[in-house]
Design a binder for these strands. Structure first.
Length: 322
DNA sequence: CACTTGACCTGTCCGC
DNA sequence: TGCGGACAGGTCAAGT
């Protein structure tokens, strides 16, 4: 479930690794994960080099020579795994314990290891110890000329990767509809309030999750920011005061910036470019903390369902007005 | 048009 | 131990 901070972390990592690499071969065995035709791949992907990596909302944009772009959406379980050396079948280490702060498997940090492997993206529940790449969740494999590889793994097959002309990127429906970047200078409290007020009759949580209101918030950061602003997620937008929305705006920028600084994080096995785990779980204040005390008042955090999602709240800090 | 629900998927976990 | 069902959650299509 990569959200903005996780995708940003992926982008920062890939931007250090991919530029300059030339694509030699592409393999895909799940058409929905990579719907391009073989002739597209032959004409525009093989032989192209990576010129840069961008992010917009939760979408990654890998720009290639030849004015084409690989557009990647990780959705919930997508991940990009970079392997720097040619290996037919590469053993790779992953996190062994969910939620722990243990260092990664020593292999990843061992300078003697010939395998340099960097893993980006969502948690990968099946790979609880040591796995092989490609594994059964590998949907697309990019082979680079120098022998390195980029694996697109996606257990649940919701994610996708598409090759399109770079000039077409702004014309994708999603790009046309998606709201402002919450960390941009343009995203002022005034802009936020004006945009979210358009969803007057829905719940504040549904409005935050609406990517056309603002980009990049998912279930984790919706719960975290609403807790920070002391707003119950089921409150209708029209029942939230401007001053509360102002507080929420501040909280969004605070929480997202902190999450990026922490290297992002999702559940389970996520690690960042340095081979370290994002430290979100130790930072989360309500998310997945049901039955634990609220860090503010000590009241037991409860889990409910709002906007069709698992929702975590402090019943005291986030009272729901009648 | 505003808003909600179901579908897309696979793996895990819980209760029987 | 096995099995069915709920659940996980980003986005779009379909429904109210």
């Amino acid at each position: 479930m990569p959200e903005l901070p996780e995708v940003e972390t992926v982008k920062l990592g890939l931007a250090k690794l991919l530029p300059g690499l030339v694509i030699a071969h592409v393999k895909s065995d799940w058409p929905k994960s990579f719907p391009n035709s073989a002739s597209d791949v032959g004409s525009f992907l093989v032989g192209a080099s990576v010129v840069g990596v961008r992010r917009r909302a939760k979408v990654l944009l890998i720009d290639l020579s030849g004015l084409h772009t690989l557009v990647v959406h990780l959705k919930m379980t997508g991940q990009l795994v970079f392997v720097a050396e040619a290996q037919k079948s590469t053993e790779y280490p992953v996190q062994s314990t969910e939620g722990s702060d243990k260092p990664l498997d020593s292999k990843i940090q061992d300078p003697r290891s010939k395998i340099s492997q960097l893993r980006f993206g969502a948690g990968h529940p099946t790979s609880s110890l040591v796995g092989m790449l490609p594994d059964k969740s590998t949907r697309v494999t990019l082979d680079f000329k120098d022998g390195s590889k980029l694996f697109f793994n996606d257990q649940r097959k919701f994610g996708w990767m598409k090759l399109i002309p770079t000039s077409e990127v702004p014309n994708i429906d999603f790009m046309k509809k998606v709201g402002p970047e919450p960390l941009s200078d343009e995203f002022t409290a005034k802009v936020f309030i004006a945009r979210i007020r358009r969803r007057a009759n829905t719940t504040i949580k549904a409005a935050l999750l609406d990517q056309t209101v603002l980009a990049g918030i998912g279930n984790i950061y919706a719960d975290e920011t609403l807790w920070g602003a002391k707003i119950h997620p089921a409150t209708r937008v029209c029942d939230v005061s401007d001053s509360k929305l102002k507080k929420l705006h501040k909280e969004i920028r605070l929480v997202l910036n902190l999450a990026i600084k922490k290297g992002g994080s999702t559940n389970k096995n996520y690690v960042n470019a340095e081979g370290k785990k994002g430290s979100y779980m130790s930072f989360a204040r309500v998310f997945r903390r049901e039955n634990l005390p609220c860090p503010h008042c000590g009241t037991t955090i409860i889990k409910s369902r709002v906007a069709g999602r698992g929702t975590h709240t402090c019943p005291k800090c986030q009272e729901l007005a009648e």
